[in-house]
C-alpha cells in the first residue's frame, strides 16, 4: 500500500506538535524528545507560512505593522527562520512561492 502523497507547501513534520503560548509557540518534537520555543514574531511568521503565505507576502504584511524596520530586513529574518526550522527538523516542504 502506498502512502498518501505529501501535500505541497510548508508543514510541520509528522512527529512535531505546535502549542500556542502567551508569548509565542512551543514546538514538541516527539521523535527526538526535544522541545523548542518561538517568540511572538516567530510564531506569527510560522503560522502565516503554514497557512499558505509566501515569505515575501508575510514580510510585507509584517513590515506594514511595525516601525523602523524595512521589508527587506524582515524578509531576510523570515528566510533565516525558515532555515533554522528546517535545520532543527521541525518543518518540511517549501513555503508557497509568489
Amino acid at each position: 500500500m502506498t502512502p498518501p502523497p505529501e501535500r505541497p507547501g510548508l508543514r510541520l513534520r509528522r512527529d512535531v506538535t505546535a502549542c500556542d503560548t502567551e508569548t509565542g509557540m512551543v514546538l514538541l518534537d516527539e521523535r527526538t524528545g526535544r522541545y523548542w520555543q518561538l517568540n511572538g514574531t516567530g510564531a506569527h511568521i510560522l503560522r502565516a507560512l503554514l497557512d499558505g503565505g509566501t515569505p515575501d507576502g508575510v514580510a510585507e504584511a509584517l513590515a506594514a505593522r511595525v516601525e523602523a524596520v524595512s521589508r527587506e530586513q524582515i524578509a531576510a529574518d523570515v528566510r533565516d527562520l525558515l532555515d533554522r526550522l528546517a535545520a532543527a527538523r521541525l518543518t518540511e516542504g517549501a513555503p508557497a512561492a509568489g
Binding site: R34, W36, Q37, L38, G42, V69, L81
Partner: peptide, 14 residues
C-alpha cells in the same frame, strides 16, 4: 515594535 523571530531549544521531555 519589531522583535526579530527567535527559535530556541528549551529542553527535552526521581
Amino acid at each position: 515594535v519589531y522583535e526579530p523571530p527567535v527559535l530556541a531549544g528549551i529542553g527535552s521531555f526521581p
